[in-house]
Simulated scan of single mutants.
Amino acid sequence: MSTTMTAPATIAMAPRRRRRRSRSEKSLTALQYLLLVFFAVIVLTPLYLLLVTSFKSPAAFSQSTAWFVPNSFSVDGWAKAWDRLAPALGRSLLMASIASVVSSFLGSLNGYVFAKWKFPGSHLVFVLFLFGMFIPYQAIMIPLQAMMLQVQAHAPWFQGIPVLILCHIVYGIPICTLIFRNYYATAVPNEIVEAARVDGAGAFATYSRVVLPVSLPGFVVTLIWQFTSAWNDFLFALFLTTPNNGPVTYALQALAGGQNPDYPSIMAGVLVASLPTLVVYIALGKYFVSGLMSGSVK
């Protein structure tokens, strides 16, 4: 008797539970959207201030009205920023492109060796490679500057961008080696490498014909990482270059210096200097997370 009474009651309560669950899910979804909008506003607020200020004339700018849209838009700040930063933008683009490609390729070679070609002391050498990731720039800047000055005394052409290219390549090798070593250890089966060895392929032939064609996800990650790191660097540029032969970060610092700063041109310069990295992330950002996750599990 009790069983026949309980079953219909349970069936009748099921729709109520589903309605309650759907209401709670809708509330949770609404809360998530509210949080996303809240954090988006926080993140985009500085961008709004940059854009609004960059289209003002120097005479129309004041701190009390910095958040207001200008009554009349002016592109004088953009023109001045472009004139001052255009040569440095070309130098930075050359530096970041070469440094990211070379360090990624060398890291790919190292990661392949450490993942697939074991030799005595390979783990110790790999740890020493990783140790380079934890050496802060500030700790080596003064001796590095002295060494570069000695080199430049015998090779005057080795100044400015060539120095920064070498530094970013050397400092980028450890992180690129780590990324590619983990990628090759899980994403590239050992059977493929062993089959290439059986067919008579050497280490470099196996790398170029078997491993390199499947390395695109790893290269996407390291290229984005290295390009952004080299482009945004200021400390190396400050110690090893001058505003006349340095990257855009150094030129931007020179633009922002002085006792009477031109805030519209400074804000426009910040936006101009950030556009290349923004373009890189828009073009390759969707592959970044997938590249990081590639090879994470077998």
Rank of each mutant, 00 (worst) to 15 (best):
N71G: 15
Q150M: 14
V270T: 10
M95I: 07
T65L: 14
T228D: 04
P243N: 09
Y137C: 01
D83F: 07
L50Q: 08
V297M: 08
W82P: 00
T65W: 03
N232E: 05
H168S: 08
R197T: 08
G291E: 02
L144E: 10
V220E: 00
V188I: 14
K286F: 07
A60N: 14
L235T: 12
R197S: 10
I142C: 08
L106E: 03
M147R: 14
L106A: 09
L284K: 01
S27Y: 11
W67I: 14
M267S: 10
P58C: 09
Y207N: 04
W78G: 10
L252T: 00
L292S: 05
G258F: 05
A96I: 03
L223S: 02
V43G: 04
T228I: 12
P276Y: 07
T222Y: 02
V69Y: 13
Y287F: 10
S215Y: 00
N110Y: 08
G218V: 03
Y33W: 15
D199Y: 05
Y33V: 11
A185D: 06
P120M: 04
S108P: 01
L49V: 12
G90T: 07
L106V: 15
L255R: 00
P247F: 02
W82Q: 07
V297H: 09
T6A: 09
L130D: 05
I266N: 00
M1Y: 13
E25G: 10
S274N: 10
T177N: 05
Q253L: 09
L284F: 15
L89G: 03
A205F: 12
P264G: 05
V170W: 11
F234E: 00
V41S: 14
G172M: 07
A254Q: 05
L50A: 12
S97T: 15
K80D: 05
R197K: 14
L94A: 14
M148R: 08
N190F: 07
N244E: 12
A195D: 06
T242P: 02
S57R: 07
Y171F: 15
R91Q: 04
F38Q: 09
T222P: 00
A99H: 02
P243W: 05
T3N: 07
A14D: 06
L36K: 06
A268S: 11
F288E: 01
